[in-house]
Design a protein around this nucleic acid. Structure first.
Lengths: 110, 110
DNA sequence: CAATAATGTTCAATCTACTGGACGTGAAAT
DNA sequence: ATTTCACGTCCAGTAGATTGAACATTATTG
């Protein structure tokens, strides 16, 4: 079963901020909720939930709405999106393929 | 009906980056997928989808996993989370409550 | 103030993500 | 080399998100 979830305060804060950023971005661009919803391919109800910071919304729709509302996702960083993506992909190859906890206690437990 | 969605390249990039950041953060902290999934209160399958950048996952679970993996959500900014949230809330009150497109064409159509 | 439009909110039907279990694969430790 | 376990993947059942329409409630324009 898909039990009811609990979210850390940090998570709820981030969700709330994301929603506000989208709403602000939308209004500053003079778009109505219906307009943005249409562009994002979602219902106005869902957009309303997004701007409210609801945790159950699909992340793809949230990011899409954010993008259309002019909210920078990772572009605030120095690197462009594709470049950053490539950089992370390379970084991943340098990491071990799987995480194994050594049975013999190492000295990182304090 | 909830038709199949399309996402802008920008959105897909952001999703991919988010997934990679979580995976990298998890591994750097020496956590197995099962461990992080347990802490986030989700199944390992869902975490796998998250790290893959799947757009259909609930944003709350993604943000929760990110938080637990040490991925900064909006904390990379100068302001703390709650302060930023308050700042945005105030900014919202300063904006008009609703967006109305004036019937008399204003000079913003070129 | 009146008219109009945007936003807030509810709801049943429908679509889909989530789960937990299973199995196979491959990598890391002994 | 062998063992162990993390990871990748599939699946049916189930809980829950999405929708679209309706209606209520503001807010803005004239």
């Amino acid at each position: 079963m898909k039990r009811k979830r609990t979210y850390a305060r940090r998570t709820r804060q981030a969700l709330s901020i994301m929603g506000k950023l989208i709403r602000i971005g939308r209004m500053e661009r003079g778009m109505t909720a219906q307009e943005l919803a249409d562009r994002a391919g979602i219902s106005r109800t869902t957009l309303h939930n997004i701007e409210k910071g609801a945790p159950g919304v699909e992340i793809g729709t949230v990011f899409e709405a954010a993008s259309l509302a002019g909210v920078p996702l990772f572009e605030n960083d120095e690197t462009a999106l594709s470049a950053e993506n490539a950089r992370l992909a390379e970084k991943l190859t340098l990491l071990p393929k799987s995480v194994r906890t050594s049975r013999t206690e190492v000295d990182d437990d304090f």
